[in-house]
Design a protein around this nucleic acid. Sequence first.
DNA 1: ACATCAATTAGATGCTTATCGAAATGTCAA
DNA 2: TTGACATTTCGATAAGCATCTAATTGATGT
Lengths: 96, 96
Amino acid sequence: MSAKRARLSEGQIHLIAKALADPRRMELLRQIGCCPKPKQCADIKDCQPVSAATLSHHMKELETAGLINVTREGKFASYTLRRDVLKAYTNHLTKI
Amino acid sequence: MSAKRARLSEGQIHLIAKALADPRRMELLRQIGCCPKPKQCADIKDCQPVSAATLSHHMKELETAGLINVTREGKFASYTLRRDVLKAYTNHLTKI
DNA sequence: ACATCAATTAGATGCTTATCGAAATGTCAA
DNA sequence: TTGACATTTCGATAAGCATCTAATTGATGT
């Protein structure tokens, strides 16, 4: 699940582009990616003026797009940014 | 209007991301960027199964985002891809 | 002046989505 | 088991947007 060189289908490209088009998700990605350690869901919630339900929704979008990895431990969830996927996306864009 | 290194505001980032999130606009960008010569509006219309009104709408979105340059000669309009802006956007993404 | 064609704008419609509160699910500890 | 807490799912609402047709603007040629 962490290939060095991700291969993106046309559908994935579209999912990623949509995921990046929302400012809140962009902010979430920045927060998740700011340090290499997995970000706890609760920590993120403290920094975003949004309900838990909405946060959960956005996280699912980011995960579906492949932009983050989610690990669940008991009650808690943590997220890491998938830089390889982001890189594959920017690669695709520059090849236009 | 053709700076080598474009500086993108937060608002521009958002406009670009939204512009790229629509598959039709993505296709338009590909078509415009496929060869260095400016693409005529009529030529593009021939390749896209969409009304002139819708095409005009998408072109305006792309122009507002800064992703294309538009030149008008008489009745006709032509478009060129702004690779510098696209590059600035991908740069921004990888710096997340 | 007039007709024609390219492109844009206006207005309407239907689909998608961001958001919330409430309910449900799952986990842990007393 | 019971209660508290984290996260997800459900259902509803409101805003945004892609698309169309029709009307408009603007340029060109007769």
